[in-house]
C-alpha cells in the first residue's frame, strides 16, 4: 500500500530535522509508541500499539536509516512483527523536508508498506484511513514539541540576556 502524507510546519528545516532524528523525542510524538531502544545512530527498535476499533496490534518495529542528507532527505526501512494478530509489516519510507518561503518547512512522507498475515488479508481500507489519522495526530504532536522546544529556547535566551 502506497501512502503519501504531507504537512507544513512553521519551524525551519534544521529544527524539524533535529527533532525527527531524536528517537526519544519521537517516542513522545508517534501515537501509540510505547518505548524505543536506540541500537545505533541509524538503527532503532520501537514498540508500538495500534488500535482500530476493538482490534489492537502490538508491533515491535526495527527501523534502519539507509540514507540521509541533513536536513532535507531521509530514507529508512522498517520491519515489524506482531503476535497478537499474527501479522507483520514491512515498509520503505522516504522523508523530504522542503523549506517554504515563510521560513517554515513542508514535510512530505512517501511510504510503501506491505502488510503480511491476517491484517493483510482482511482488507486494508481501515488501515489506510487509520494511517491518515495517525499522521494528523503525529503532526500535531510534532508541532507541539517544536513549540515547547521553541519556547524553551526563548526562555533560555532571555535568561542569558
Amino acid at each position: 500500500m502506497d501512502i503519501e502524507l504531507k504537512h507544513d510546519f512553521a519551524a525551519p528545516a534544521d529544527r524539524l530535522w533535529t527533532l525527527l532524528l531524536d528517537p526519544h523525542a519521537m517516542a513522545n510524538c508517534v501515537p501509540g509508541m510505547q518505548s524505543v531502544e536506540v541500537v545505533s545512530d541509524t538503527e532503532y527498535v520501537a514498540r508500538m500499539k495500534v488500535k482500530i476499533a476493538f482490534i489492537s496490534a502490538s508491533f515491535t518495529i526495527r527501523t534502519v536509516i539507509t540514507e540521509q542528507t541533513s536536513p532535507d532527505y531521509l530514507r529508512c526501512e522498517s520491519t515489524g512483527e506482531d503476535s497478537a494478530v499474527g501479522s507483520s509489516v514491512k515498509s520503505i519510507n522516504e522523508m523530504f523536508l522542503i523549506p517554504d518561503a515563510n521560513g517554515g518547512t513542508s514535510l512530505r512522507v512517501k511510504s510503501k508498506a506491505t502488510v503480511f498475515g491476517r491484517l493483510g488479508t482482511l482488507g486494508l481500507n481501515p488501515m489506510r484511513t487509520k494511517a491518515d489519522r495517525l499522521w494528523v495526530e503525529f503532526c500535531a504532536a510534532v508541532e507541539k514539541a517544536l513549540e515547547d522546544a521553541g519556547s524553551g529556547q526563548e526562555t533560555q535566551r532571555q535568561s542569558i540576556a
Binding site: 500500500m1 506491505t114 493483510g120 488479508t121 482482511l122 482488507g123 486494508l124 481500507n125
Partner: peptide, 13 residues
Amino acid sequence: FEDGRLMNGNLAD
C-alpha cells in the same frame, strides 16, 4: 489487486 495482493478478498468488499 495491489502489488499482486488481493485487497478485497471478502464478501463485504
